[in-house]
Simulated scan of single mutants.
Amino acid sequence: MATDYDAPRKSDEEMREDSIEELKSRRNDQQSGQVDEDEVEAAESFELPGADLSHEELTVRVLPRQSDEFTCAGCFLVRHRSQVAEERGGQAYCFDCAG
């Protein structure tokens, strides 16, 4: 935390009083723990500064499954064959999902 050495100093007594008053005001504030913002609405209204991406398209190149890869039946992540912990019913599970 930055310290402003030119600011007037408060005594220990003044600092204690400020802290107590601040705590009392927080305790009396019943709305302090509630958030009224809708996350979806906030995300829709968020725009990158100076960027209009409405005309852009996302292009993704999907690679075919490699011989040394598998898709975990638990987490559905593509992993290296060395990550196979067990196979149940023809389905492979990684170390994170096995057990």
Rank of each mutant, 00 (worst) to 15 (best):
V62R: 08
T59E: 07
F46R: 15
V35N: 15
Q66P: 00
Q30G: 08
M1R: 04
S45V: 14
I20F: 07
S67Y: 05
S11D: 09
I20N: 05
E69G: 02
A85F: 02
D18N: 14
A7Q: 06
C97L: 04
R26Y: 09
Q83K: 07
V40N: 04
L53R: 14
H55L: 09
Q30T: 08
P49I: 13
C97F: 01
A51F: 15
V35F: 14
A85W: 00
T3R: 09
L23V: 05
I20P: 00
D38K: 10
A98F: 03
V78Y: 01
S19A: 13
C94H: 00
E13A: 12
I20K: 12
E87R: 10
P64K: 09
A51L: 15
V35Y: 14
R81V: 02
H80C: 04
S82C: 05
D52N: 14
F70Y: 03
L53N: 11
V84R: 00
V62M: 11
E37K: 12
L53D: 15
I20T: 02
F95I: 03
S45W: 15
Q34K: 06
R88M: 02
V60Q: 10
S19K: 08
L48K: 10
A2Y: 04
S19R: 15
E37Q: 14
A92G: 01
P64C: 09
A73Y: 01
H80G: 03
A73T: 02
